[in-house]
Design a protein around this nucleic acid. Structure first.
Lengths: 166, 166
DNA sequence: GAGCAGCTGTACAGATTGTCCAGTCGCAGC
DNA sequence: GCTGCGACTGGACAATCTGTACAGCTGCTC
C-alpha cells in the first residue's frame, strides 16, 4: 500500500481535474499557473503512484434504466466466503461488494430497474446456498454522492475548502 | 430521470472506455469498427443523455493516506435530517451519504488514516446533536470494487460478459 | 416512392500530447 | 561559501486527436 504524499499543487491539480475533467494538461497547467511540463510530471507521478486509478467514464445507473439503489447486508455461512464472492461477482446488479467486520458479513451495493425488480435482484443475490440471510436497505436519497475532492484537499493540507472558483 | 436506451454499440463503447479510458474517440471508433463520427456522436449522446456523468479522475483514498474504509449507519433524531446532511457534508472523510429506508436512518461511507484514526472520524461524525446513534462496520476486503461494466452490458443486451478481450 | 435518421469516408484548421532540452532556483551536505 | 541534485520554467517539434462539416449510401417508416 504505497502512500504518496500529496502536496498543495497535487491537490489543486486533482481538484481541478475532478471539477472539469475535460480541460486536459495544457489548460490545467495554465490555470494552476505552472509550466505544462510540471503539470504533466505531477499527473504522471500521481498516476504511477496509484493515486489516480484512471479516468474511466462515470456511468449513472439511473440513466440506463436502474434508478433504484439498495444496500444489502449479507450473513454468510462459515467457510463459504469464496463461493459467495464468486456468485456475487456474477450478478451484474451488484455494483460493489465489501467484507465487513461483524459475524462474517458482507455489504453490497445493488441497483434495480424498480422496487419490484429489486425483489428479483435480491432473490438472485440470496439464491445461493452460502448466504444465510440478507437485510436490505433501499436508498431514498443521496445527499452526498461519492466525492473525493474534500478528502484530497484534506490530504494536501488545503483546509477550508468550499468553492474557490477561478 | 431521463432514461436513455442503450444499444449494443453504446454498450461496447462504454465498456471499451471503461477498460481503457485513455484511448480517445479515434481509437475507440477504430476498435469498434465504426466511423469516428459515429463513435463521436454516440459518445455525445451518452454524455448529454446523462449516462456518462463525466471522466473525472478516480482517486484511491488509500494511496493518499486513508487506507481504512468503513460504513456507518446513523440513526437520526426526528426532523434533524437537513442539519445532519449539512454537518456530514462538511466532513471530508465522509465520501458519500445516503438516506435509506428504516427508521429515518442514513448510511455513509467513511475513510480514515488508520483504525485509531477512524475513532476520530466517527467522533466527528456523531458529534452532532441530530445524530442519536451510529453503528460502524469496518471494511476488511473489497472483493468487488465499484464496477459498471456488467450492468452496462446487461442494459445493452450484451449478456454472457466475462472477458471478451480484443 | 418519398422522407428521414443514422452511418460512412473524407477533409481541414486548431489544439493537444508526448518528448526533449538548456537554463534557473532553492536547498542539503561538505 | 560552494557543489550537486531535484524540480520548475519556457520553448520547440513531430505526431496525433478533436471539433466540425459535407456528400453519399442504406434501411425503415408512412
Amino acid at each position: 500500500m504505497t502512500t504518496v504524499s500529496i502536496d498543495e499543487l497535487d491537490g489543486r491539480l486533482l481538484e481541478l481535474l475532478a471539477r472539469e475533467p475535460r480541460i486536459g494538461v495544457q489548460e490545467a497547467a495554465r490555470r494552476l499557473g505552472v509550466a505544462r511540463g510540471t503539470a504533466q510530471a505531477r499527473l504522471e507521478k500521481l498516476r504511477t503512484g496509484g493515486v489516480i486509478r484512471g479516468f474511466g467514464p462515470e456511468v449513472d445507473p439511473a440513466a440506463i434504466g436502474f434508478p433504484v439503489t439498495a444496500f444489502a447486508t449479507l450473513e454468510i455461512k462459515q467457510g463459504q466466503g469464496l463461493e459467495v464472492r464468486e456468485h456475487l461477482r456474477g450478478v451484474p446488479e451488484v455494483l460493489e461488494l465489501h467484507t465487513i467486520t461483524g459475524q462474517g458479513d458482507m455489504l453490497c451495493r445493488l441497483v434495480a430497474r424498480s422496487n419490484a425488480d429489486l425483489q428479483r435482484v435480491i432473490d438472485r443475490v440470496v439464491g445461493f446456498e452460502g448466504i444465510v440471510r440478507a437485510a436490505t436497505a433501499i436508498v431514498m436519497e443521496n445527499p452526498v454522492p461519492l466525492r473525493m475532492v474534500p478528502l484530497v484537499r484534506e490530504a494536501a493540507g488545503l483546509r477550508a475548502s468550499d468553492e474557490n472558483r477561478g
